[in-house]
Design a protein around this nucleic acid. Structure first.
Lengths: 360, 360
DNA sequence: CTCCAAATTGTTAACGTTCACGCATTCAGA
DNA sequence: TCTGAATGCGTGAACGTTAACAATTTGGAG
């Protein structure tokens, strides 16, 4: 077969024709009419070939393709967008995209979108204040995106999506819980927390402490619940879980407190960065990992396997998350999906930071 | 003053007018003509107001703005792009954007672009093969971007940019060395390496070992040269520098070799992740940091201050890099810049992983 | 008051596609 | 052989904006 996509990429954006008559200041691009003239057909037929319309004789189709190739024709997407109202562009609302998780989702979405024939435009938000999100959606709609994926860890975002024009399909990814405003794709945080906690209990620990993420982040909350639920089910004591931020500094601060308590033998951290801080606190307090205390993280960020010691953690497949989000968005755009919620299962990556509790 | 930007954001993408006459299947958006009619002027005047054309009487300007507001008018950018050939969109060619550095640059570029009134579209490349880069530029030009910033650590990319249509301005960021294909923005790697090496020499180390990045990455090469030059200048012995990849695994592998050599007292690592691997290797070999061996990294990635021990490193200001790239691109687009190369100075962040050599 | 230049506004024609038609031509079935 | 549908292609007319130019109004100097 002989399609558009294997045209040679010798020059970009179409070549220029020798300006036929009235010399304009800006050079004229090759357009459908030029192709049509060369192929001896009407511009409409060229359009049909471009859009794979069935009712074109094979012979003329080839003639048109040949003409396109020799003129290095590129279709003008702005003109197409003007009339069809679709831009082959998707919008992404990004938050904290410098961090590994969001950055991975962004990348995964973009890759998948490209394979589906879309370009992605990005509108980052500094914080999750509603008006910033609204403004981001606005910028994207102004640029006529065909759909939006929000990397949205908090519900403020999903609810802001509800204000988008009804024709604009939106999906939220990296989100905990459901929302009636938009379909969501997220990881099963409770299951992940359960995995981590159960792993530690199975090793023989009496109970498991938890260094939580921010209290107002649903994902952090779900992890707390998964941890707590597992302890309940096992009949173990449930220690208090002090919330904090997602970084090592916060883990370090709370790690120092935990390190001072000799009864603590197992700690589940809400993410790997927190775990890094806890590791340092334990080290400074002279408590060995995993001989004295076992640690489990969450995320499996790059190089978590090179912490001291290599970190046992719950792996989030961010790339899968991104892919699923795109698939869901496309399904909703084509109207043949009513899925509201996609959950991706995390899994445990056992490494050297966990072991049986010290024998008393 | 009373501008477009403080229109209320109650609805997106313009409201719909009650379909005046012939009922079409798709709802009609508010367009300039509607605004014009309401304000009692011609559509061209509306256009002038929108583009801040000077020759509009203040009174009519206000009337038009009011009409726009009450109709919640949004201009159709596709139509605008069709005629002006500019899209208010910039393209970014991304590589390895899941990593902290590139992700930060991406974010910084996007933020700065937004402030300048641009939306950014992103085209990622899986690897730096020339045809992939060419294809990425092609996708962006097809979507009529006004300029391109490539996050381009290797020269294959900058040279591929040379194939872009001449009217399309391109800038490369995160690049070592100069290129005649496009202006480049980069960090002063040699200076950074010098900072690190000199810091160790100043502490009293006889020489400094280096765990390098990939041999075919110019940035890694510049760091090697900065390190080597500093040693030369100080009259110190220059040990061989084994290259590797940018990650902890690679650092660990080469760290094991270095750890086995008792004469090694100072190691400069090409980045923080490598340093993490080296730290683990030293730890496993029973060599203490910084008492026995001092370590310096490069990047200052998040949480480098929570390694064991907290890592002394050379900080790259990725956000500054991104901002400078955008500024440079805009200057080149407006034609009033001939700057070819922007260098950003890194600086040393001393932490706990460096100290004087052990006294024999 | 008159007249010319500047300031302000309107008219018409692009920009490059797709859509809604309409006109030939082909082909199957009676 | 004729009919009617299906196939293949062409002809305007949108889509919503800006550019170019023409027309009108304004303001000040003579």
């Amino acid at each position: 077969m002989f399609t558009l996509t294997n045209l040679p990429l010798l020059a970009f954006g179409g070549s220029f024709l020798p300006s036929s008559d009235g010399d304009r200041s800006r050079p004229r691009l090759t357009v459908m009419r030029d192709v049509a003239k060369l192929a001896g057909v009407s511009h409409q037929t060229v359009s049909r070939v471009l859009n794979n319309h069935p009712n074109v004789r094979q012979e003329t189709r080839l003639r048109v393709l040949e003409a396109m190739q020799s003129l290095n024709y590129r279709r003008n997407l702005a003109a197409r967008t003007l009339v069809t109202r679709q831009s082959d562009t998707l919008g992404i609302i990004g938050f904290e995209t410098t961090l590994f998780g969001p950055a991975s989702m962004l990348y995964a979405i973009e890759s998948a979108a490209r394979d589906a024939g879309y370009l992605v435009s990005i509108a980052s938000v500094r914080d999750l204040e509603r008006r910033h999100v609204v403004e981001a959606v606005d910028r994207l709609t102004q640029h006529a995106v065909d759909g939006v994926i929000a990397i949205a860890p908090k519900l403020t975002v999903t609810s802001a999506l509800a204000q988008a024009p009804p024709s604009l399909r939106c999906v939220a990814v990296g989100t905990a819980g459901q929302s009636d405003a938009a379909p969501t794709v997220g990881i099963d945080n409770a299951a992940g927390a359960c995995l981590a906690t159960q792993h530690l209990l199975d090793l023989g620990h009496r109970t498991v402490h938890h260094v939580a993420g921010p209290a107002d982040w649903p994902e952090a909350q779900e992890r707390v619940e998964g941890w707590r639920g597992t302890l309940y089910a096992a009949g173990a004591v449930v220690p208090p879980a002090a919330p904090g931020w997602w970084d090592a500094e916060s883990g370090y601060a709370r790690g120092r407190t935990l390190a001072a308590d000799p009864t603590v033998t197992a700690i589940f951290c809400a993410n790997d960065r927190i775990a890094l801080g806890v590791l340092r606190a334990l080290h400074e307090a002279g408590r060995r990992v995993p001989e004295d205390v076992s640690i489990v993280g969450f995320d499996d960020m790059p190089d978590a396997g090179y912490f001291l010691p290599p970190l046992t953690t719950v792996r989030q497949d961010f790339r899968e998350l991104g892919r699923r989000a795109l698939t869901l968005l496309l399904e909703h755009m084509s109207g043949d999906s009513t899925t509201d919620r996609v959950l991706v299962a995390p899994h445990l990556v056992p490494r050297a930071s966990t072991g049986p509790p010290p024998s008393r």
